[in-house]
Amino acid sequence: MAQERTGVATFKGSPITLIGPELKVGDSAPDFVISKNLLEQASLSDYAGKIKLISVVPSLDTGVCDAQTRRFNSEAADLSDDVVILTISMDLPFAQARWCGASGIESVITLSDHKEASFGEAYGVLIKEFRLDMRSIFVLDKNNIITYVEYLGEMAESPNFEAAVSAVKSLM
């Protein structure tokens, strides 16, 4: 049975339960299996040798998630080719592709955790009450060591974009 963490996050002020461990700076990033599209899967090893900014959002079809993904898409222009930005949500791959096309998102890779919640459980962001992934940010170096992590305490708040981008730039 996966670890449950209570008292660490809320949704509009109401407590929610996160499933999985709380990862910390210096930890080795756990592997995961996630959907690129309906038929293709991805894992952490698919991005080997890259600096990874992992932006986790509950759903791209909400205002804060939309803004978060657009912001990292625009920040990508100032980052090197050694950096990959992954946006992970529970949205179906069809919905992610539709949203990216409609939003002009080309510099961020969207991945879906909908099948197994493998990422959510491994990174401690799976919300038990909603089966969504909690808004969070992880920066991994080229060796998959976590160099920056932000678990938001309130699902409806935005992450610290400047700190996340600065953490990425310090690895370039």
Rank of each mutant, 00 (worst) to 15 (best):
S112P: 03
P159L: 01
R131A: 04
P93A: 12
G101F: 06
V25Y: 02
W99I: 00
A164W: 02
D82G: 10
L152K: 08
S59I: 03
L92Y: 10
I51V: 14
S118F: 08
L111M: 10
T69H: 01
I51N: 11
V33N: 10
Q3L: 14
M172H: 05
L39A: 11
N37V: 07
F161Y: 15
A67L: 05
V165Y: 02
A163Q: 13
Q3E: 15
D91K: 04
A95I: 10
V64R: 00
L86F: 10
I19R: 10
I51T: 14
N73I: 04
P58V: 01
T10Q: 12
G7S: 05
E40T: 15
P93Y: 04
E150P: 02
D27W: 08
S80N: 12
S28N: 14
S55Y: 02
V139I: 09
L38S: 10
N73Q: 05
A29N: 11
G63N: 04
V56Q: 03
R135K: 10
A122E: 06
T110S: 13
S43L: 01
K12F: 14
A167L: 08
S89F: 02
G153A: 15
S158E: 15
S55K: 00
F94W: 13
G153F: 04
L39C: 05
I16E: 04
K12N: 15
T17E: 09
H114M: 10
E106M: 00
G101A: 15
I88L: 12
S59W: 01
N73C: 04
I85A: 09
L39Y: 12
D113N: 03
L171G: 07
T10D: 04
S89R: 03
Y151W: 06
A76Q: 13
L39F: 13
T110E: 00
E150N: 08
I105N: 01
A95R: 06
S103W: 00
C100P: 00
M1F: 07
V56N: 02
M172E: 15
V8Y: 09
A48T: 13
F161H: 11
L171W: 01
Y123A: 10
A163H: 03
L132T: 01
A163G: 06
V8C: 09
A117D: 05
K24L: 11
G101N: 15
F72D: 00
L18A: 07
S14E: 14
I85C: 10
E121L: 15
K115Y: 12
V33F: 06
S14N: 14
P159M: 05
G124E: 11
V56W: 05
V56C: 13
L44Q: 12
L86A: 10
R71G: 00
A42G: 11
I105T: 00
A163I: 05
D91V: 03
R71T: 15
K169L: 12
S80V: 11
L132I: 03
T87H: 05
Y123V: 08
M90V: 15
Y47M: 11
H114C: 07
A42N: 11
V168C: 08
I51E: 08
T10H: 05
G63A: 07
K128D: 07
L140T: 08
G7L: 10
G124F: 07
G26V: 08
G153N: 12
A2K: 02
E106W: 00
K24M: 05
D82R: 14
L92A: 12
S80A: 11
M90H: 07
T110P: 06
W99P: 01
I34K: 07
R98D: 12
S166L: 09
L111K: 02
